[in-house]
Design a protein around this nucleic acid. Structure first.
Lengths: 113, 113
DNA sequence: GCATTATTTCCATAATTATGGAAATATAGA
DNA sequence: TCTATATTTCCATAATTATGGAAATAATGC
């Protein structure tokens, strides 16, 4: 992880609408949600939603896949992990127990029904 | 944690200079660093540094204390924890093991010499 | 091909944020 | 009080980012 990617990822969630979208997707799990549902749940007009989804997507914090006419968006848990790890890297100079290892939202253990 | 605070905190580190400052302080541990040292290490002019430190401070991600003529800045590990927890809250709907508990950088276990 | 639905692009406008020089303020020691 | 050092405030300029309507594009079923 380099600092520019980290800034891009942080910027992408440093905005209320996008943070709501991201958290919604984090909570939605590996199946994700189609764009339309996201806009409906969060009451965001299509053009604005599209703009924000693109920002999150470019940052790499969410992925998308097409299913018929719907585009499903999902949180990229690995990217989230990477970002959190970067923030806490070498915490307290790694000298002691101040900062335990982190392992958060490992997508390998997803909850696909 | 409410979404506005989270956005404020994320915005505060969604900027290269500030992310460098924050990470430097996270790594510096509980003693922290005086403003001057930060500016020197990261090559940031005083006025710019002051602006960025204020942003981080207002967001609550760093604290400061005066020691003689120096102002020491420190990472607020509790705030960092809170932010990371907010991002991963109810991950995958909390249905399974997708997202283990997180405990990162607990300042109670600091490494004061 | 046509109608329908889903999503994105384009665009102008508005709002926010970053930069750093110069001056001001604060602290401490002689 | 005078001087030196540390940090912040002020300010103008520049750059980036957000918003949403309207139009365009894409995908599906009939």
């Amino acid at each position: 992880m380099d600092i520019k990617s980290a800034v891009t990822q942080l910027s992408s969630i440093a905005q209320e609408a996008r943070l709501e979208i991201f958290r919604l997707l984090v909570q939605a799990g590996v199946e994700g949600l189609p764009a339309g549902s996201i806009g409906e749940k969060l009451n965001i007009p299509p053009s604005t939603l599209s703009f924000h989804l693109k920002e999150l997507s470019h940052a790499g914090l969410i992925d998308s896949r097409q299913v018929s006419r719907f585009i499903y968006y999902t949180a990229n848990y690995a990217a989230m992990n990477g970002l959190l790890a970067y923030l806490t890297e070498n915490c307290c100079a790694g000298v002691n127990e101040c900062c335990p290892d982190i392992t958060i939202c490992n997508q390998e253990k997803g909850n696909e029904p």
